[in-house]
Computed example of a mutant assay.
Amino acid sequence: MDYLAFTAEDFASDNSFQNWLFKRNAKDFEFWENWISKNPQKKEEISEAIAILSSFKVQEPEVSQTQIDNSWQKMEEILEIGDEESGGETPRHWIRYRYGYAAAVSLLLAVAVIYQVFFRDRLVIYTTDFGETASITLPDNSVVTLNSNSTLKYNTVWDDDKDREVWLNGEAYFSVVKSGSNQKFYVNSRDGVLLEVLGTEFNVTKRESRTRVVLNHGKIRLNIENPSLNEDIIMLPGELVEFKDTSTTYIRKKVNPELYTSWKCKKLMFEDTKLEEVVLLLKEIYGLEVEVSEPALLEKRVSGSAPSDNINLLINGLSESFGITIIRTKKHVKISRK
């Protein structure tokens, strides 16, 4: 797309540009940061576009077909009355009335569109790529650290009389502030797990392989909608609760929370950790295809730490720690005995 030819209105209408301004998508944010720095000649148009969007909080219009149909039905009823009173003819004043009403309906629809576009709650979406993390400040000043290959969604406007709510797919660390109006804070995942937060810090992992919650501080109530696990679980600091989507039972145990949140500090900590668990990390966090020469290797265990922001150093460290051979070719990793 030729962004150099864009006007301020073009930028304001561009979805990718909106994602950058409102920080809804990490890839778009990075693209526009680079593009703007390389094209200072578009500074004036960019500034005008920012002013437009900041004033109106743009989002996608959502005028329903029902609204449109109802408006046209009302207009047609008035037009039919006019025809009856004029004996089937359409005098000039009714023509003016028709066009005047049509214009009024159009104006009302336009106002509805503008309201939906500029003032209705917008769903903010943050997405991180493999090997990428992001820090997000929510409308209530709670902070979320989003791990790699993860998505966080929430409405940009949080009213004082409504509960706070976010949706997570992937992994994130939450530091939730207490609400002055005692609003509840909920974290939703796609597998029917609802976390009710009571002023706390915790780590949530929602991957295809498992759902895991580790509580650092405070208190959490887990509501599990699985018919076989239809119960509430009150978690205390230092506890882990984990279950698989297909499982009818869950694991609950005391752990060292630092082991599960060290990724925030760009390192991975292991404590008697199976290679099987490390393989999952390589797949879910770095998007690697992992081939293991023999299943018995997955039972090997290791304790220690490794950097998480440099995949080559991580693989070298894992190779030495486990006493195995790890060969990486782009997105493919092969693990075998030395």
Rank of each mutant, 00 (worst) to 15 (best):
T128F: 14
D129G: 12
D129V: 02
D129H: 12
D129Y: 13
D129I: 05
F130I: 12
F130M: 04
G131T: 01
G131D: 06
G131L: 05
E132R: 12
E132G: 13
E132T: 10
E132V: 15
T133D: 12
A134V: 03
A134L: 14
A134R: 06
S135N: 01
I136E: 02
T137H: 00
T137L: 03
T137C: 00
L138H: 03
L138Q: 03
L138A: 01
P139D: 00
P139R: 00
D140I: 03
N141M: 04
N141R: 03
S142A: 07
S142G: 09
V143R: 03
V143P: 06
V143I: 15
V143A: 04
V144C: 05
V144I: 10
V144Y: 14
T145S: 15
T145M: 07
T145H: 15
L146V: 10
L146N: 12
L146D: 12
L146Y: 05
S148N: 02
S148D: 05
S148R: 09
S148F: 06
N149Q: 12
S150P: 12
T151L: 04
K153N: 11
K153P: 09
Y154P: 01
Y154V: 02
T156S: 11
T156A: 15
T156Y: 11
V157D: 07
V157T: 14
W158P: 06
D160S: 13
D160W: 06
D160A: 15
D161S: 07
D161R: 05
D161L: 05
K162H: 02
D163E: 12
D163H: 09
R164M: 05
R164W: 04
E165S: 14
E165T: 06
V166W: 04
V166L: 09
W167L: 04
W167K: 06
W167Q: 04
L168N: 03
L168M: 07
N169L: 08
G170V: 00
G170H: 07
E171T: 08
E171K: 06
E171C: 13
E171F: 12
Y173M: 13
F174M: 12
F174R: 08
S175C: 09
S175R: 14
S175W: 01
V176I: 15
V176C: 11
V176E: 01
V176Q: 11
V177A: 01
V177S: 05
V177E: 02
K178T: 00
K178D: 01
S179G: 12
S179D: 11
S179L: 09
S179F: 04
G180S: 09
S181A: 08
S181H: 11
N182A: 15
N182V: 03
N182H: 15
Q183C: 09
Q183P: 08
Q183H: 14
Q183M: 05
K184Q: 11
K184G: 13
F185A: 11
F185M: 13
Y186T: 00
Y186Q: 10
Y186A: 02
V187M: 08
V187Q: 07
N188C: 00
N188G: 00
S189G: 10
S189Q: 06
S189K: 07
D191I: 14
D191N: 15
G192E: 08
G192D: 06
V193M: 11
V193H: 03
V193Y: 07
L194Y: 02
L195Q: 08
L195Y: 05
E196V: 10
E196C: 07
V197Q: 07
V197A: 14
V197R: 02
L198Q: 13
T200H: 09
T200F: 13
T200D: 09
E201L: 06
